[in-house]
Structure formats: C-alpha cells, structure tokens
C-alpha cells in the first residue's frame, strides 16, 4: 500500500508540473483530468470516500467539459 501511495503521489506531482508546462491548452485540460482522477484515488486511500466521489464527478467530469467548452470558444494554443 505504501508503494502504491508513493507511485500515485509521484504521478500526481508530475501531472501538476506538466499542466503548467504544456503550451497546448487542450492537452493541459486532459492532463488536469488525469490529475483529478489520481486525486480521487488518493482521497479513497485517505479513507474519505465522500470527497473521492465528489472529486471524480466534479474534477474529472464536469470541470473538464467546462474547460473544453471554453477552449472551443477561444483559441487552443497558449500565447
């Protein structure tokens, strides 16, 4: 369980840095969805299934769709 935790946190930090570094905003949104999904698993490992459920529904689902709707209205690449 400890090894799984470490792997997940390393992947979480990698995702958080990659979101900031990516110039393509659509890729950044998809990486952010992966970040939210890992965060949901981590909330479950922290014995907080309530927050995990909310994170999986809001963070990985609705927020991603909202960001994609905004990107489709504006431009895709960061200046």
């Amino acid at each position: 369980m400890q090894v799984l935790n470490v792997i997940l946190i390393v992947f979480l930090i990698t995702c958080a840095i990659a979101v900031e570094k990516t110039r393509d905003l659509l890729s950044a949104v998809i990486i952010f969805a992966a970040y939210s999904l890992i965060m949901a698993v981590l909330w479950l490992l922290l014995r907080s299934p309530d927050v995990a459920m909310t994170e999986a529904a809001i963070g990985a689902g609705v927020t991603t769709i909202m960001f994609i709707a905004v990107i489709s209205r504006t431009r895709r690449m960061e200046k």
């Binding site: 309530d50 909310t54 529904a57």
Partner: peptide, 17 residues
Amino acid sequence: SPGGGFPGGAILGASIV
C-alpha cells in the same frame, strides 16, 4: 453511506451533459 446531495446531483447533471 458516503455521498449525499452534492455528489449525487453532480452525477445526475453529468448524465445529461
């Protein structure tokens, strides 16, 4: 059980989305 109004409502909204 875990869950409640906010996660359940978000899941219901996500289905229509």
